[in-house]
Design a protein around this nucleic acid. Structure first.
Lengths: 183, 183
DNA sequence: GAAATTAAGACAGTGTTGTTGACGTAGACG
DNA sequence: CGTCTACGTCAACAACACTGTCTTAATTTC
């Protein structure tokens, strides 16, 4: 129909923009995300928790001391939706709250030891899958994966990723200085 | 702790398997999938449909004449979960059923003209995002993205993707013969 | 210092999408 | 003919998101 021609400006090979390729990407996002999230479900079910709980554990683990508001803006859900899962995690002793010092209205969130243990167990399940895929695909493919994924998400999420990436870069630099440690 | 060393066998550079990289992948899967699926939500909401309906439209569109059982095994949900959304799509005239000729127990699913129109509108929203990302990332990155995504999903899903990919390859071959058409 | 805004929590009600288990019917198949 | 399969349906339930309203405490603003 009114498709952009397969060859774009400067005659670059843009066959990967063909409709079939884009539809394949839809498929892949669905399957990869579904099977990736499924990986941790067995553990969660045993504990009567769901994926929403896992997401909270993940982001609090990655951003120790974050406020409830920050968590809300990362997850992009309503306060009420978060309250249910966060309340359960606090009641069960996975997450601890501390009053903010700079702003005492804030409740700063951290994983307890119990929370760290659970988060690690959940992480290991998903890590298996990702490491296997990354290893088989190789570093060039992984770099491509990152670039495409970054491009798919909203600007806001990209900024968050960049900040998290900065932390990873710092870890890398540190590891180069002291290769025995792993952040 | 008991992390695999950053340098693997043969001293290959496997820094991309470090924990920070894997955690970044978790983040990216969450954000990319969320924002990708969100793209079509506005249209769906106007029609009183949800993402589950979109998924059905997508897969029926991609596999015209598929049976209900095939659709179930692709979506990996229960009959009851599908019945609700599929029933609505049939009632609203987006999807038509036809009795199977080889096996008359089967109900073969196809998009009606109305269904094709809607699916196309939904597709365009998600395509914008994917094309933008693919174009900016370039063909090498896209190839890497594909390899990593394939590796993340279950074997079963990978087999489905391969079959779909075969169709895409056929389209490509045809396009090479007749570059004016787009499958 | 009073007023407005913000961070967080809580209440009640609703909708989508997934689940289980049981049951029925039509058609395929040994 | 009996059994298995494909599909549909009923009832009940659970996870997770939403809306709107309200309260409390603390910060910010005028």
């Amino acid at each position: 129909m009114s498709e952009p021609k397969p060859t774009g400006p400067a005659g670059a090979n843009l066959l990967f923009l063909r409709e079939g390729e884009i539809r394949a990407a839809q498929d892949m996002l669905f399957f990869a995300y579904r099977d990736f999230t499924n990986a941790a479900d067995v553990i969660l079910e045993e504990l009567g928790l769901g994926r929403a709980h896992h997401r909270v554990l993940h982001f609090v683990g990655r951003n120790a001391g974050m406020s409830v508001g920050e968590l809300l803006s990362i997850l992009n859900i309503t306060k009420q939706s978060l309250a249910r899962v966060l309340g359960a995690l606090i009641d069960d002793g996975y997450i601890a709250q501390a009053q903010g010092r700079a702003d005492r209205r804030q409740r700063l969130l951290t994983l307890t030891a119990k929370g760290q243990d659970l988060e690690r167990r959940l992480f290991e399940r998903q890590r298996e899958r990702l490491v296997k895929s990354y290893r088989e695909a190789g570093s060039t493919a992984v770099e491509g994966f990152r670039r495409v994924m970054r491009g798919i998400m909203n600007e806001e999420a990209r900024l968050y990723i960049d900040r998290a990436e900065a932390r990873t870069q710092a870890d890398r630099a540190e590891a180069r200085r002291d290769p025995t440690r792993e952040g």
